[in-house]
Write a protein that binds this DNA or RNA. Structure first.
Lengths: 354, 354
DNA sequence: AGGCCGAGTGGGAGCGCTCCCACACAGGCT
DNA sequence: AGCCTGTGTGGGAGCGCTCCCACTCGGCCT
């Protein structure tokens, strides 16, 4: 078992052969009695190989346990067979909790049948953003998935100018040139507000997300549409500005109560904000849903654990991850093609808060 | 801008030069008026370079925007400069929600100053496990971080036999040969139970995690120790078996109530189970904490949102991630050295449920 | 009969780097 | 003067693969 003797043995020593030397294409070719080219063709699924040669090669591969060396392949093809999932760190926590894992889970599921490997890159500050830029410029990935897009985020523009295949979760605006996948935010918001109207709510307030994010703006837009289609006025005094955080929800709720004490419902653009709002409502002696109905957005874990359990708009996050990966693979496969853009349906999950 | 003409242009076309050709070592050498070797030495920080040559090379690198080609480097060194974070999919959701993101966040933070890239590998079933084995055998990563270790998990054994540097989050048992990082599960459990004892609780029950996980066993062990050091008996009828899920917590709580209706406290090995337990208690007409005090484990988001907010044992998850990455880098840097094993302190966060 | 095709094949060249050997050259010793 | 250091340097070899050119060899055409 090649145990090392002497605890503090010299530095560079010890690097020794971990496991036996891996077989190369050449060795497979020798064993199969064919040339390197033929083995390569078999491995890469070229049709121009005789049945006989193919069998011999496959047998040799199996016998030697041959696995192609990715680095060698990358060196010549300059494909890397890996894609990066880029996540601005600030968002990690902020997002409704399972968001992050669910996106990853979807992406990974879609990649599972592929040779593609998934690189995770968290970007926490300016310096790391610059490192990322260098990284991408060096073409170390075949494509990029970018989560959480703010309107002034420089990353999408970078991806665009580098012409790296990429898909966003979100978009900068209506006319996003890059490929993206989003949930039907406006539609979800409309459903929520219609639900409140149907319940007989009259003064329906909303707490928005950060309005430099298209998703937050779309949710606000849906709120407004639902009111207008019901012939209700859109009242500025019923709109509270939040930032997707619980504390933001608390602050906005307090302000709303002060400004418009007569409100009888709140549609919040995130569950976390809704949870904060519910705390403030309770502290103010208002009962949910009797005095004030509350609806959140995301249908995250917290929604199931507030008191009362929260009605919320669900977005198919894992499906978003899958779709992102699928679009990206397509784009990598046929570059130059127009970017695809997908909107996935949302769904209202009714619990007890509205 | 090299726009492509003709929408549906033929398949293999369009792969054209995305961005200008990247400069190579050779070009840098030419521009700096030195040999390839010298540039390589500068790039890799070898001390055996004159100040003058170094400056010339650095200037050339800056001018050309040179970034070393990783594949070429890997091909000759057979280092990959990447490590894999392996996560059994089943766990993704199960874990107290921010767990996953926090581990990643910690790992990534520790890697940020490094050349290392982070590969994320979710393993969802037997087939993917086998693919992973092939993957690791092909030595495509320099090291592995493995999250969530069950006693009979074949992965650690695989890592061991492959002699790949690796660090576990968790361990299989006391005598884990691989490197690992864990929280002081027993200590945390002791603190929780002591807190309950101090509060005057008399019949303290516990709901365990799946006992094929060392962490769950350790928490049960801590529960028992705290009782025994206080001279209280360890009563089997006060131990409910859970599985870390909310539903598991509900089931265990119902059983406990039936078996031992006199209980006045429950220490749960996870917040999710505690949340489930609290629902059952309320449904049974028992008030928390007046009739039954409840303590969870993890201090996850749900803990802050239960009614009443939950007292819970916090583990420093991000710190665990950082530590794992650090240990792994050390192990990669000096292989053959003994595996390091770290236990991080836990902390009792007191809220209203106990 | 001669010619021409296309299918199948072998193997050279080369991707961009690191490793290491050979060498130049300044300084300090006998 | 001659020698031996030690420091700094250039560049050949080669990592394992894909790409592509050149070749063979049947079968089909005129």
């Amino acid at each position: 078992m090649a145990r090392m003797v002497g605890g503090q043995a010299g530095g560079p020593a010890g690097g020794a052969a971990r496991g036996a030397a891996r077989p190369t294409l050449e060795e497979v070719a020798a064993l199969a009695g064919v040339g390197r080219g033929t083995v390569s063709r078999v491995v890469n699924g070229s049709p121009r190989v005789s049945e006989k040669a193919k069998e011999a090669v496959l047998a040799a591969i199996a016998e030697l346990g041959y696995v192609p060396n990715r680095a060698a392949r990358t060196l010549v093809t300059s494909r890397t067979d890996s894609i990066a999932l880029v996540v601005p760190e600030a968002e990690t926590r902020l997002f409704s909790e399972p968001y992050f894992s669910d996106i990853i889970s979807g992406v990974s599921a879609e990649l599972a049948e592929t040779e593609m490997q998934l690189l995770l890159i968290l970007v926490r500050n300016r310096r790391e953003r610059e490192r990322l830029a260098a990284y991408l410029t060096a073409q170390r990935v075949d494509g990029v998935l970018l989560v959480s897009v703010h309107r002034d985020d420089p990353l999408p523009a970078l991806l665009e100018s580098l012409e790296i295949p990429s898909v966003l979760a979100g978009r900068r605006g209506d006319a996003e040139p890059l490929g993206y996948v989003i949930a039907d935010n406006a539609g979800g918001a409309r459903m929520a507000v219609r639900h409140l109207l149907r319940r007989g709510c009259d003064a329906i307030a909303t707490i928005t997300g950060p309005l430099d994010m298209e998703g937050a703006r779309a949710r606000l837009g849906g709120y407004r549409q639902a009111l207008e289609e019901a012939g209700r006025p859109y009242r500025e005094d019923l709109v509270g500005l939040g930032d997707f955080t619980e504390e933001g929800g608390r602050l906005a709720m307090r302000e709303l109560l002060e400004r418009s004490p007569g409100l009888d419902a709140v549609f919040c653009a995130s569950d976390l904000m809704a949870a904060g709002a519910m705390q403030v409502l309770r502290a103010a002696g208002r009962w949910v849903p009797q005095d004030v109905a509350v609806i959140g957005f995301d249908d995250s874990v917290v929604a199931r654990h507030t008191e009362p359990p929260m009605t919320s708009v669900r977005q198919p996050i894992e499906e978003m991850g899958r779709t992102m990966a699928r679009l990206l693979l397509e784009e990598i496969g046929s570059p130059g093609r127009a970017h695809r853009q997908v909107v996935l349906a949302t769904e209202l999950v009714v619990r007890d808060s509205a």
